[in-house]
Simulated assay, not measured.
Amino acid sequence: MNKKAQITRWVLGPLLALAVSAAPTFALAQSAPASGADAAAIVQAATAPLAATPMPAGAALCEAPWFRSGSRVQMEGDGDMPMSITMILRDVMRWDTGCSAQLEVRSKSALAALKGPPVDTNQMHEINIDRRGASSKTSIDSRNAVINARARYARVFGEAAFRGSGVFNYAGLDIREGMMLEGETFRSSVSLKIYPIARDEEVGTIQALYASVIVGSRHVGRKQMIDTVLGRRECLPITYEKRTSLGPLQVGDEMLQVEPSLLNVTDWYCPSDAFVLRTEIRQNNRLQRVDVTAMEIDPPDR
Rank of each mutant, 00 (worst) to 15 (best):
K3D: 02
K3V: 05
K3L: 12
A5H: 08
A5E: 11
Q6T: 12
Q6G: 01
I7P: 00
R9V: 01
W10I: 07
W10L: 15
W10E: 06
W10V: 03
V11P: 00
G13A: 12
P14D: 13
L16H: 03
L16E: 11
A17N: 11
L18I: 11
V20S: 14
V20R: 11
S21N: 09
S21L: 03
A22H: 01
A23M: 08
P24L: 12
P24M: 10
P24S: 08
P24Y: 08
P24C: 12
T25Y: 02
F26D: 00
F26S: 01
L28W: 02
L28S: 05
L28Y: 02
A29T: 12
Q30F: 10
S31C: 09
A32Y: 07
A32T: 06
A32D: 03
P33A: 14
P33V: 09
P33L: 12
A34Y: 08
A34D: 06
A34Q: 10
A34R: 07
S35Q: 03
S35Y: 02
S35F: 04
G36I: 05
G36W: 03
G36L: 05
G36M: 07
A37T: 07
A37C: 01
A37P: 00
D38Y: 09
D38R: 10
A40C: 07
I42G: 02
I42Y: 15
V43M: 15
V43T: 12
Q44S: 09
A45D: 14
A45E: 10
A45S: 15
A46I: 06
T47P: 00
A48E: 02
A48Q: 04
P49R: 05
L50E: 03
A51E: 01
T53N: 05
P54C: 04
P54V: 07
M55F: 05
P56A: 15
A57K: 02
A57S: 13
G58A: 10
A59N: 04
A59C: 01
A60R: 10
A60G: 14
A60N: 09
L61P: 01
L61V: 08
L61S: 06
C62G: 07
C62T: 08
A64V: 02
P65M: 13
P65F: 11
W66I: 05
F67I: 12
R68L: 03
R68A: 04
R68K: 12
S69R: 06
S69G: 03
G70H: 10
S71N: 05
R72T: 12
V73G: 00
V73T: 12
M75G: 00
M75L: 14
G79P: 01
G79K: 13
G79N: 07
M81V: 11
M83K: 08
S84T: 13
I85T: 09
I85P: 00
I85N: 01
T86K: 11
R90F: 01
V92E: 02
M93Q: 14
M93W: 00
R94C: 05
R94M: 11
W95E: 10
D96I: 12
T97C: 05
G98C: 09
G98Y: 08
C99E: 03
C99T: 09
C99G: 06
S100D: 10
S100A: 15
A101S: 14
A101I: 13
A101Q: 11
A101T: 10
L103S: 06
L103Y: 04
E104A: 14
R106A: 02
R106M: 04
S107Q: 06
S107Y: 05
K108D: 02
